Amino acid sequence: MNKTLTAIATACTFALGAPAMAQDLQEIDVLTPLPRHTAWYPLLVGEALGYFADEGISVELVNGGDLPATAFLENGQVQLAALDPSEVILAHERGFDFDVVYEVMHNAVEGIFVLEDNEAASLADLGGTTIGIVGESDRGLLLSALGHAGLSEDDVTIAVLGESAPLLANSLSNGQVSAVVGAISDFVAIRSQGIMIRSVLPDEMSKMPANNFAVRGDSIGGENEELVQGFLRAWAKSSYAGLVDLETTRAIAMEADPENWINEELGTIFLQAAQNLHRPEADVFGDVRHEIWSSVISEMVDVDMLDATFPAEEILNDHYLAAANDFDHAEVEADVAAWKAENM
């Protein structure tokens, strides 16, 4: 994920009505792979609409740098950490007690991109072709996807292309490769060259959760109970608010994350892709989907990343979901409309 979204933004906070005094807010430390960024628009929207302040919270983002993200959670340096499934699962195998309490992104941040007019209906139709990967870190995703599609590494030729937007786009448009495996930033990079693409990542992989909020298992019900509960409710409200009106969310993101909005058209493409990541399957924001996690655990065993399967319930916890989703959608829609009327 770190290579996925690399732009650095400066924080800019807005509020509807009278803002809460800073000294009245309790700080919550959250480990994320990015600073305030369009990809994390719920934070930007929540600060603009005052939802975190309403909960008596100020959000401090912690950058883990090169250290394992799980170390910050284990050492108590943060109350929550955004972790990918493999990080949580491998930590469990090492004996750490972490619980995923909220799925931040309900869809995979990666894709296997083909030209929009490509006749391939699925990845299975790309057997015998050359598939490009942006970098070596994308090879594992491709191999796993091939397995889901009934293919193997021997059925395709893999070419490492690098991150150059013109090269990725040209490789697709001139037929050098049939597909490019990369992340959301690579999708935007190819689109920036005027190339229309779609993803053929197998459905069961496209639902892979990413950047899930995890807590120490022994912290649930402890001294930070109300702090975490308030944060997750503000996050869920903000996630919904960011889906209500694209123009409003775009205006908030442009102000808070200007470096990703030098080109407004590309910024909009990026924002819409981010919205698709944060949009839940049903109406439950943050829903921890046990069946998806069980599939991930099994697949990690199949590719020898994990020694043995275990029940997904050992790392998933629905404890905060009811409170997180305890907000009125109509009121949020009214908040968005009010902000738009006042600021646009």
Rank of each mutant, 00 (worst) to 15 (best):
K340E: 13
A82S: 12
S152Q: 07
A308Y: 08
D287W: 14
S173N: 07
R289E: 14
A330H: 08
F52C: 00
A81V: 01
L306K: 10
F310E: 03
E204W: 10
A251Y: 14
A282P: 09
Q26V: 10
F14R: 13
Y320A: 06
V30A: 05
E264P: 01
I57M: 00
E110R: 07
L43A: 10
L5S: 14
T10P: 12
F231R: 08
W40G: 11
G56K: 01
G267W: 01
L321V: 13
I220M: 09
L277E: 05
A256S: 11
V177G: 07
G150H: 10
I262A: 11
D326M: 05
L246T: 12
F327L: 07
E299S: 15
I131K: 03
T32I: 09
V288G: 08
R36A: 09
D257E: 09
F270V: 00
S171G: 05
F231K: 10
T6R: 13
G65D: 10
Q23V: 13
N170A: 11
L232N: 02
L43T: 10
F327V: 04
A241L: 09
V156S: 04
D245R: 15
H290P: 02
V88N: 06
P35I: 12
A274I: 00
L146T: 01
S178I: 07
L115K: 02
F310L: 06
I220Q: 03
A256H: 02
V101S: 03
A124N: 08
V288C: 13
L201V: 02
V181G: 00
A282T: 14
S199M: 05
E27D: 08
D155L: 08
A81C: 00
A312W: 04
E333M: 02
A165M: 04
G127F: 08
D155N: 06
V62Y: 03
V134A: 04
E223L: 10
A251I: 12
F72P: 06
V215G: 03
V188G: 01
E247A: 15
L243I: 09
I112Q: 03
E226T: 11
G222K: 00
N212Y: 05
L34S: 14
D66P: 10
D54G: 08
W339D: 02
M300S: 13
G50T: 03
A274D: 01
P311G: 11
V180E: 02
W40Q: 14
S173C: 01
F213V: 03
I158G: 05
N276M: 11
N343W: 12
L73I: 12
E291R: 12
F310C: 08
M300L: 15
A124F: 06
S58Y: 07
V134L: 06
E331M: 06
L67T: 15
D328M: 04
A71E: 15
I197G: 05
Y102V: 06
L34T: 14
G64M: 04
E247F: 07
A91T: 01
V303Q: 14
V336Y: 01
M208D: 05
V45T: 02
D245W: 13
N212W: 00
E281A: 15
H92R: 11
P33V: 01
P42T: 11
E333L: 01
E223K: 07
